[in-house]
Design a protein around this nucleic acid. Structure first.
Lengths: 160, 160
DNA sequence: TATGAAATGCCATAACC
DNA sequence: GGTTATGGCATTTCATA
């Protein structure tokens, strides 16, 4: 599925830096990891070409933008069959409101993370995705009142 | 709490671009939004200084790195009092395993998102954070078997 | 207080070893 | 992987409205 790319210590140290500050000059990175500027730039180009670095983006404070509601949904399917689950997963991937979705253990089959501008937007989402789906037995809505931590970029998936 | 920064249409269009590709030259952005290169660079500097742009990072494919488990935890407290909740929230903020935490409505008080290298790591987490906390009535563990969607950077908090 | 234009200096790129 | 010459890009300064 995903090709395995061998990352040596240099790659890992470079990744550890750019995942926090990807605008940092190669000169500075080179000094920190003990390589030449060229070597760092070559490695970065390779990491991007092979997909280890998926994207280079600015992280924007969601609180500064138009308000949105974060809602988690616990979904229980009629039957936990691979085929049914896969079908449901396909639908989720197409919905832009779904910013996170996991197939989990236990009574709950799926945990969804959804962001919508308002409750009306959530209503529209469940009317489109959950209610008409005969494979969905029931779902539980967890509306977020307060956000304690969200995807702290300094924490997500630490590089070893 | 969070100072309100007024973002005009230019700012929003610039943000919409850099949140997808922050390595894009200002020249290119300027052409797209209809400003000069200088104006774009000045606005970007201001957006970073004021914290609208929180960070500039490379997004790394988690599958290419050392494996880690994603676990969601539904936590029910003894009593849903503001003081108790705040105390619990404080503890969560200090834990690096917690990459997401929300105070939610319903029977569940908190929904946590945790990443650990192994089940042993999760065990250690609950032994440190949940078990010894007398304010925690019970918790439910949802281990992720499969990740359908995770924080698609092209989706999270779309700019209007 | 914002933009647009031009000179300076830094940085990535590419072709060498 | 390191070194160097080249080109591109951001930064700074200034003029303008």
């Amino acid at each position: 599925m995903t090709e395995t790319v061998t990352l040596d210590t240099f790659d890992r140290r470079i990744l550890a830096i750019v995942r926090r500050h990807n605008l940092e000059p190669a000169r500075s990175i080179a000094d920190q990891v003990g390589l030449s500027e060229s070597a760092v730039l070559r490695r970065l180009r390779r990491l991007r070409a092979t997909g280890v670095i998926m994207a280079d983006v600015s992280l924007i404070d969601p609180r500064r933008l138009a308000s949105s509601i974060t809602i988690h949904v616990l979904v229980e399917l009629m039957q936990s069959l691979p085929h049914v689950e896969q079908l449901f997963a396909r639908k989720l991937e197409k919905r832009p409101e779904v910013i996170g979705a996991w197939n989990v253990t236990g009574r709950t089959d799926f945990l969804l993370m959804v962001t919508v501008p308002s409750i009306e937007g959530y209503q529209a989402f469940i009317d489109a995705v959950l209610t008409p789906d005969e494979n969905v037995r029931r779902y539980e809505t967890l509306v977020s009142l307060r956000e304690i931590v969200r995807f702290d970029p300094y924490r997500v998936g630490e590089v070893c």
